Simulated assay, not measured.
Amino acid sequence: MRRAVLVGAAGFVGARVHAALVRDGWDVDPVDRAACADGDVPSAVAAALASPADAVLCCAGATTGAPDALERANADLPAALAAVVASAAGVEPGSVPRSVPRSVPRFVHVGSAAEYGAACGERPCTEDDPPAPLSDYGRSKAAGTARVLATLPDAVVLRATTVIGPGGRGFLATLCRQIAAAPPDGVVHVGPLDAARDLLDVDDLAAAVVAAAHPDGSGAARGVLNVGTGVAVPLSALVARVRAVTGFRGAVVPDAPAPATSAQVRTQCSDTTRITHALGWTPRIPLDATIRRTWLWSTAP
């Protein structure tokens, strides 16, 4: 049985990755900061690697907080984990073995399309586009990607677009919760709806993590791989689809303040040609299905 050490197993993405790994027949050793002595995740991973592992997966991170907190969660932690993997396998940090020894676990880190910022304009971003993050979050994620690949050049960084689904905290989940709390003919206040985003179901991202972790068939995959749908959905269209799924008859008024980066990045979507060729991964879950699941989650007792 394949074995994975999963960091961030209790989080929004990590919990779905855990479930996907189990369905795929993996033995999963979950590591979460809350369960570690003094929050020392790298030491917990080093202890877990005392037994052979096929993959170390980093799904931990933070989306909000002060710049130094984001740097610790999104750059320092994955860099430390990459160093632990290199040390446990006896690999010189920064080196690329001609053939990766079977003792070297596959290291997969979940990055973010926020690393691109507004670099791509209206077109889909490719992995060859240089990072140009505009937010503290994006800068911390870009730093994490750079430091991971500097330590383990054979690592895989999955640069995910806007991740949505049950348990999320972004625009879709917030809108569903607002509608659930409002009267049927009430008013819901949201931010501006003129941006467009590549909306990725969290279970599609989990499937990409599992595909990247596989020791079989993923040997050609390394470096940054975009994970998304390749389609930028206008937030106004997303609201219309949410209304259709939920049956909400009230008003959705875009008069709330916008996040700072939303005004700077009007359109974000990613080209996923490379991950399809490398891993055979494509998104499979329709947007309306994700909306339906998120709505059911938001209305659950």
Rank of each mutant, 00 (worst) to 15 (best):
A46M: 04
A160W: 05
P283C: 08
S140V: 02
T267F: 07
R139L: 13
R197A: 10
A86E: 09
A251D: 10
R106M: 00
C58P: 04
I164V: 02
A300R: 15
E115G: 15
G111I: 13
G223F: 05
R23I: 05
G25E: 15
R72S: 06
A278Y: 08
D203Q: 13
P131V: 05
G223E: 11
R16T: 11
H277I: 10
P67Q: 03
T174G: 15
V239S: 07
L134A: 11
D29E: 15
G144L: 00
P133T: 05
G219M: 02
C36S: 08
T145Q: 01
V104L: 04
C125Q: 12
K141N: 15
A155C: 10
G219Q: 10
V242N: 04
P257L: 06
D194W: 15
R284P: 06
R98P: 07
Y116G: 13
G228A: 03
R147F: 08
V96M: 09
A258P: 05
V265L: 10
A206R: 01
A119G: 14
A244N: 10
F248P: 06
A20G: 08
V85G: 01
I164K: 01
A196G: 04
R106I: 03
I179C: 10
P257D: 04
D185G: 03
R72V: 05
V56Y: 02
R169Y: 07
S135F: 07
E122Q: 15
G250L: 00
A220M: 11
A263P: 11
A62W: 14
G11R: 11
G250N: 04
G223Q: 11
L200E: 14
G186F: 11
V100Y: 01
S51W: 00
R243F: 01
A182H: 10
E71G: 05
A213S: 14
V100W: 07
A4Q: 07
S270H: 03
L81W: 02
G94R: 00
G138P: 09
V224K: 02
G168N: 02
A155Q: 11
L152T: 00
D194R: 15
T174V: 13
P183Q: 10
R169H: 13
A50T: 14
A86P: 10
L49S: 03
V104C: 04
V190W: 06
A53M: 02
G25K: 14
A50F: 11
A207G: 02
P283R: 05
A9T: 06
L199T: 07
A263E: 14
V5Q: 01
L6P: 04
E92F: 05
A244C: 08
